[in-house]
């Protein structure tokens, strides 16, 4: 994946496929400690105990369309080649928590990339799923919660094209703001 935000889109998709109604995405950039961590939590079905130990093996997958599952393996490899760590915990019936950390200035670390586009793609493709996004950048934080947006929209669907274009611009502005650019 060229951007970490594409991994985020992929892992969120895992949660949705597992029947989640809420995806929590947490990005934390601490420049003083030179770390970037990405956490994705869903309230889906969880991963069976027998599977969790080798879930990052590309030949272990729940899918039926083909016999390889690359998503988690790629994310793990991305974290580990940047002196980071990868962790996954899951409880059946409660959901899954995936955690990846990266050395912020590692030469191999892909840029975080276009987060607004990742969030808007999720909202466009899965309008019934709620997303909670938190981004911390050196202590400044930005949060975005589709449940609040939904309440504000008062019955207008989240995937209305005009709404999505508006949200994309707004999210980009807020993220630029916390990054001071």
């Amino acid at each position: 994946m060229k951007e970490l935000s594409l991994h985020i889109l992929d892992l969120a998709e895992n949660g949705i496929t597992a029947g989640a109604s809420l995806i929590r995405i947490h990005v934390n950039e601490i420049l003083s400690e030179n770390t970037l961590t990405i956490q994705i939590q869903d309230n889906g079905n969880g991963i069976p105990l027998a599977m969790i130990e080798n879930i990052t093996d590309p030949f272990v997958t729940t899918r039926t369309t083909r016999r390889v599952g690359m998503g988690l393996s790629l994310f793990k490899a991305a974290a580990e080649r940047c002196n980071g760590r990868f962790e996954i915990t899951s409880e059946q019936g409660k959901g899954t928590l995936t955690n990846g950390s990266f050395q912020h200035d590692h030469i191999d670390r892909a840029p975080l990339g276009d987060m607004p586009s990742t969030l808007v793609s999720l909202m466009a493709g899965y309008p019934e799923i709620d997303i909670e996004y938190t981004h911390l950048y050196d202590g400044l934080n930005f949060t975005f919660d589709t449940r609040e947006i939904r309440a504000e929209l008062d019955g207008i669907p989240l995937n209305e094209p005009a709404v999505l274009q508006h949200l994309k611009k707004a999210i980009k502005q807020e993220l630029d703001h916390i990054k001071g650019s």
Binding site: T143, L153, A162, H166, A170, E174
Partner: peptide
């Protein structure tokens, strides 16, 4: 800083 401002959404909503 904090939450996404939702005030603009109101105008959009009417449209």
């Amino acid at each position: 800083m904090g939450k996404l401002s939702v005030s603009d959404l109101k105008n959009l909503k009417e449209k």
